[in-house]
């Protein structure tokens, strides 16, 4: 009951008549044959500011492997993956969504983790505790976090 009420209140807050945003679950992401994803995973536009923060935070932690000139102030950026400057010139939004969600579709065998999937792991752990994960796994990033990162990457034009 309480949950239903919250749902109603939420959809009212989110604009009343508009249908509540649809989250695409990790198993249902419509990758095309190339590995790109045309449609938003959260139905809510990405927030590039939050995406920028996620580059250096939590399970995203993209700067462990990637450099971005614009983030150089963070110091000690990784050199494993390509420099992401100009990513928005090289890729479409759909490509970037596909890369962040599951980079192994576009780059088979790549070292880059798959951030929006929940299965197929060997000995999945409970965070960084070294213990086995219990129960159902959440993807490394939420649908909205993927969208936020894509929105941030779309700001990276070659200057």
């Amino acid at each position: 009951m309480k949950r239903i009420l919250t749902g109603i209140v939420l959809s009212l807050v989110l604009g009343g008549v508009a249908p509540a945003a649809e989250i695409v679950p990790p198993a249902d992401v419509p990758f095309d044959e190339y590995g790109s994803v045309e449609t938003s995973l959260s139905g809510t536009p990405g927030d590039p500011e939050n995406g920028r923060a996620l580059m250096n935070k939590g399970a995203g932690n993209c700067v462990a492997c990637h450099r971005v000139s614009e983030l150089e102030e963070l110091g000690f950026l990784g050199t494993i993956g390509p420099v992401l400057d100009g990513a928005a010139d090289r890729w479409t939004e759909a490509d970037l969504r596909g890369i962040v969600a599951d980079a192994k579709r576009i780059f088979p065998e790549t070292m880059m983790p798959s951030f929006y999937k929940t299965g197929g792991y060997v000995r999945p752990g409970d965070g960084f505790t070294g213990e086995a994960a219990e129960g159902e796994l959440a993807p490394l990033l939420t649908a909205q976090e993927v969208e936020d990162l894509v929105a941030y990457l779309m700001t990276l034009h070659e200057s």
Binding site: F76, G78, P113, P124
Partner: peptide, 25 residues
Amino acid sequence: YTRYGRLELACANCHEDNNGSMIRA
């Protein structure tokens, strides 16, 4: 050569393919 964990990384990813690179600091 097994890619373990939710980050799916093998010893070889870091120490064979990327030795000499920086992983963050």
